[in-house]
Nucleic acid binder design. Structure first.
Length: 733
DNA sequence: AGCACGCCGACT
DNA sequence: GTCGGCGTGCTC
C-alpha cells in the first residue's frame, strides 16, 4: 500500500493488456480485496463498455493523470493466469507481425465463457429411502432397473438408456422417487493412453521415432520429418506424442484443413484409445469453452487443431507437431498476419520443448533451415508396407499433343485404357473448375468479362452459367453474342474439369466418369458420398481439381494424369514453382499409394522446367537445389524478406502519397528493392481501394526497422495502414 | 426535420 | 476492436 500526498492510501496500479488494437496496456486501479498477479485475467471498464484483459505488469507508476484511472471490475480467479511463456509469446508475435499485442491477445482469449467454471449439469438420482412408485409401469421399471448402479444420471442420458421419454422421468421426480441433483461437468475428452496400440514400425520409421522419443522429454529442438507420401510420418510423430504424454506433458498437433480432421481424429483414436480435443473455427461455443478450460487446467492432454490452436493457454505443453508444414493454410492474412508453423517453433523456443514439422514436400524455408542445422532432419525415403513410389513421366505436348480442341495426349489415353482394362482407377487432375476458362465470340472477338472484376467469366456447363471465380458473380449462359448479336459464334476456349470429363466420356463411353470439384452442388455431404463411391470402386475415371490432392486416400487409384502441369508455374508469385511442385507431388502421390502399383503422367509444354524435371525424374533434391539457388540469387524468402504494405481507405491522394514516400525511402538502403509502387499507384488510379507494395531485402531487421520508422514519422493517411511481413523468423531465435 | 451512412478519434 | 460524435446528403 502506497501513502499518497494527502495521507490516504492509494490503491496499487496494474497495467492490463486489452484485446483491442492499441499500442500498449492500459493502467487500472486495483480495488480493495482484489489481488491479481501477473497474467491474471480481469474485467475492466473501457469507454462505454466492459472488456476482459490480462495483467501485464504490476505495481507500476501511473502514466496517465490519476483522475482518468478506473478500477478493475473483476478478477477471474477461477481461471489459471496466462503464464510467463505465453505472455512472452504474445509480445513476440506482436513484435514480429507488427500487430498490436492486444490483437494477439485476442487470439488467446477466444472464449469468454471459459473464464467461469462450467455450470454443473442438472441430473437425477434415486432417493434411496423412497419406496418404488405405487403404479410401477413397465417404463418406470425400466428406468429404475437402469439406475440400479446408484449413480446420478443426466435426464436425457437416462431416458435414452432406459428407452423411455423424458416425461416418465419427470413423473418419477414428481412422485419423489427421483431427485434432481447437480452433477459435476463431464471432462471434455477422456485421457489418451500412450501405450494403447503402439504400431509396428519399419526400420527407417523406428530410427526417426527413437530420436523423437529421446527428445520428447528434453528442451527446445526443431525436427523436420521429411518423408515421401505414404512413408508413415504420422505413426512416427504419434510416438513422440506418446512420449510427451508419458512424460506428463500436453501435446498439440496442428493440421492445415478442418475438412481433414474427422479422418485424422479416428486415426488418433486407434492409436491412443481416445479422441483428442478438437479446435478450429467451426466448433460450438460450448465445446470451445470446454477445450479452452481443459487445456488451461491440464484436463485436456492432446489437442488437434487448425492454426488458431497455437494460441491456446496450455498449462504444461511439451510438444507441438505441425503436419503438412508447407501448407499455406498455416498463414493468416487478416488482422495479425502470422504463420502458425513459424510461431509454433517460436513457442517451443520460448517455453523450451521440441517442435516437429512434417511434410512429404517441405517448404523451401524448412529445407534451408534443415541444411543450416537449425532443424534436425529425419528422412523417411521409402513408403511403408513395402509399396513402391509411382513412376512419373512427362508428356511433351509439343510433340505428343492431342488434336486441336482436345486435351488428353495419346500416351495418356493409352494409359487410361490400360487401367480400365485392368479394372483400375485413373485420376485426371486439372486445377480449374468449370467447363472453359474463357468464352469468345468467333465473329467479333467479344470476350465475356466480369462486371465487377477485370477477369474472364468461366463457363459452367453443368449449371448453364457463366461465373466469376473472384467475386462470385454469375449470369446465365448466353445463346448469342451481346456485342454483335451473332448466334452459333460463341466458342469456349481452354479446358476446365467439366470439359475434361466430357472428353474422357467421349473416349471411353463405357467408363464411369466422376467429377470432383469444390463448387459441385450438394456441399460437403455429397462430397463425402462421392469420395466413398470412389473408394469402393464405383468410378473408373475421376476428374478433379485441387481437392483431390489432400487427405483422402483412393486405394484403387493407379494412374494420375496431370492435364496441365504448367498451370500455376507462370504467375508472378515468388512461390509459384514451390507451390506447383508441392501440389503435383501430392497429386501424383495418390497413385498406387496402397497397392504400390502406380504411375503418373504430366502433360507439359515445358519438360525442361526444373519443377517438371524434378517430378519426372523422381529427384526432389534437384528441385530444392534449383529453387534454393534461384531464391538466393533473387533475395527472395528465405534469403530475402518479402513485405507487403497494404494501404486501404478511400482517400486516394493520401494513399498515393504514402506509396511515393515508401518508394523514396527505399533507395536509402542499397539492399532494399521496392517493387510495385507504380503498380500500386496504377491500382489506385483504377479505383481499387487496396494495393500492395512488395519490398525485399536480405535482412528482415533492416526492412522492419525501416518500415516501422517510416510508419511512425509518416503522416497518417485516411483509412488504415497495415504492414505485413512474410518472413521465416528462424534466424532470429 | 429526421436519419442513414461513413469517417475519425478515443478508449487507462 | 468498438463506440459515440459529427458532417454530409438524401427522404418523408
Amino acid at each position: 500500500m502506497v501513502q499518497d500526498l494527502f495521507g490516504g492510501s492509494a490503491r496499487p496500479l496494474v497495467r492490463v493488456l486489452l484485446p483491442v488494437a492499441v499500442a500498449e496496456p492500459y493502467t487500472y486501479r486495483v480495488p480493495e480485496g482484489m489481488a491479481p498477479g501477473l497474467g491474471s485475467i480481469v474485467r475492466v471498464p473501457l469507454g462505454p463498455r466492459e472488456v476482459i484483459g490480462v495483467v501485464w505488469a504490476v505495481d507500476v507508476a501511473t502514466p496517465v493523470s490519476p483522475g482518468r484511472l478506473k478500477d478493475l471490475l473483476h478478477h477471474y480467479d477461477q481461471a489459471p493466469p496466462l503464464d510467463d511463456a505465453l505472455r512472452a509469446l504474445i509480445d513476440w508475435v506482436a513484435n514480429w507481425t507488427l500487430a498490436s499485442p492486444g490483437m494477439v491477445l485476442r487470439m488467446v482469449l477466444r472464449s469468454e465463457e471459459a473464464l467461469e467454471p462450467e455450470a454443473p449439469v442438472p441430473g437425477v438420482r434415486r432417493i434411496e429411502a423412497a419406496p418404488p412408485p405405487e403404479r410401477l409401469t413397465a417404463a418406470r421399471k425400466r428406468v429404475l432397473d437402469t439406475m440400479e448402479d446408484g449413480f446420478a444420471w443426466s435426464k436425457s442420458g437416462l431416458a435414452h438408456a432406459a428407452g423411455v421419454s423424458a416425461s416418465v422421468i419427470d413423473g418419477l421426480i414428481a412422485h419423489e422417487v427421483l431427485e434432481v441433483v447437480q452433477m459435476p461437468a463431464v471432462p471434455p475428452v477422456p485421457a489418451p493412453d500412450p501405450d494403447w496400440a503402439p504400431p509396428t514400425l519399419t526400420a527407417a520409421q523406428q530410427v526417426a521415432a527413437d530420436r523423437l522419443v529421446k527428445a520428447a522429454s528434453g528442451g527446445f529442438q526443431t525436427f523436420l520429418i521429411d518423408g515421401v507420401t505414404g512413408s508413415g510420418k504420422t505413426e512416427v510423430y504419434f510416438e513422440a506424442v506418446a512420449a510427451a504424454l508419458r512424460a506428463g506433458r500436453q501435446a498439440l498437433i496442428l493440421i492445415p484443413e478442418i475438412a481433414l480432421t474427422s479422418a485424422f481424429l479416428e486415426r488418433f483414436e486407434r492409436r491412443f484409445a481416445a479422441r483428442p480435443a478438437e479446435w478450429h473455427s467451426e466448433i460450438s461455443p460450448k465445446q470451445r469453452a470446454r477445450v479452452w478450460r481443459g487445456v488451461a487446467t491440464g484436463d485436456v492432454r492432446v489437442v488437434v487443431g487448425a492454426r488458431s490452436a497455437l494460441f491456446l493457454p496450455f498449462r504444461e505443453l511439451g510438444l507441438i507437431v505441425v503436419d503438412e508444414e508447407h501448407d499455406g493454410a498455416y498463414k493468416q492474412d487478416d488482422r495479425v498476419p502470422y504463420n502458425a508453423r513459424d510461431m509454433a517453433v517460436v513457442r517451443g523456443h520460448l517455453t523450451g520443448f521440441p517442435v516437429i514439422l512434417a511434410s512429404a514436400t517441405p517448404s523451401v524455408e524448412s529445407q534451408v533451415n534443415a541444411e543450416a542445422g537449425r532443424y534436425q532432419r529425419l528422412e523417411l525415403p521409402e513408403r511403408a508396407l513395402g509399396a513402391n513410389m509411382p513412376e512419373i513421366v512427362a508428356i511433351d505436348m509439343r510433340q505428343d499433343g492431342p488434336e486441336r480442341g482436345q486435351w488428353l495426349a495419346p500416351t495418356l489415353r493409352r494409359a487410361i485404357a490400360e487401367a480400365l482394362a485392368d479394372g483400375a482407377q485413373s485420376l485426371l487432375f486439372l486445377n480449374r473448375r468449370g467447363y472453359a476458362p474463357l468464352t469468345l465470340c468467333r465473329s467479333c472477338g467479344h470476350r465475356f468479362q466480369c462486371p465487377n472484376c477485370s477477369t474472364w467469366l468461366i463457363e459452367h456447363r453443368f449449371r448453364g452459367q457463366l461465373a466469376c471465380h473472384h467475386c462470385g458473380h454469375v449470369e446465365p449462359s448466353p445463346d448469342h453474342c451481346p456485342s454483335c448479336g451473332g448466334t452459333d459464334s460463341l466458342v469456349p476456349c481452354g479446358p476446365g474439369v467439366e470439359r475434361i470429363a466430357e472428353e474422357a466420356g467421349d473416349l471411353f463411353p463405357d467408363a464411369r466418369v466422376l467429377v470432383l470439384s469444390s463448387d459441385l452442388p450438394g456441399g460437403a455431404e455429397r462430397m463425402k458420398r462421392e469420395m466413398k463411391v470412389i473408394e469402393e470402386g464405383g468410378a473408373d475415371i475421376v476428374v478433379g481439381t485441387q481437392l483431390v490432392a489432400k487427405g483422402h486416400n483412393f486405394p484403387l487409384m493407379r494412374l494420375v494424369g496431370v492435364v496441365d502441369a504448367d498451370l500455376g508455374l507462370a504467375n508472378g508469385d515468388p512461390r509459384a514453382a514451390e507451390r506447383t511442385f508441392q501440389l503435383l507431388a501430392q497429386v501424383t502421390g495418390r497413385a498406387g499409394r496402397i497397392s504400390g502399383q502406380g504411375h503418373g503422367m504430366l502433360q507439359t509444354y515445358a519438360p525442361e522446367h526444373p519443377v517438371i524435371r524434378a517430378l519426372a525424374r523422381d529427384d526432389r533434391a534437384a528441385f530444392y537445389r534449383a529453387e534454393i539457388a534461384a531464391r538466393r540469387a533473387a533475395h527472395l524468402p528465405p534469403f530475402g524478406r518479402m513485405a507487403a504494405l497494404i494501404i486501404s481507405g478511400q482517400d486516394k491522394a493520401a494513399a498515393a502519397a504514402h506509396a511515393r514516400a515508401l518508394a523514396l525511402c527505399a533507395p536509402r538502403d542499397p539492399a532494399l528493392t521496392v517493387l510495385g509502387p507504380a503498380e500500386a499507384a496504377l491500382a489506385l488510379v483504377r479505383g481499387r481501394h487496396r494495393f500492395r507494395l512488395l519490398a525485399m531485402t536480405p535482412r528482415a531487421t533492416d526492412l522492419q526497422g525501416l518500415l516501422r520508422a517510416w510508419l511512425k514519422q509518416a503522416p497518417k493517411p485516411r483509412g488504415s495502414v497495415r504492414l505485413q511481413v512474410d518472413v521465416d523468423p528462424q534466424s532470429f531465435l
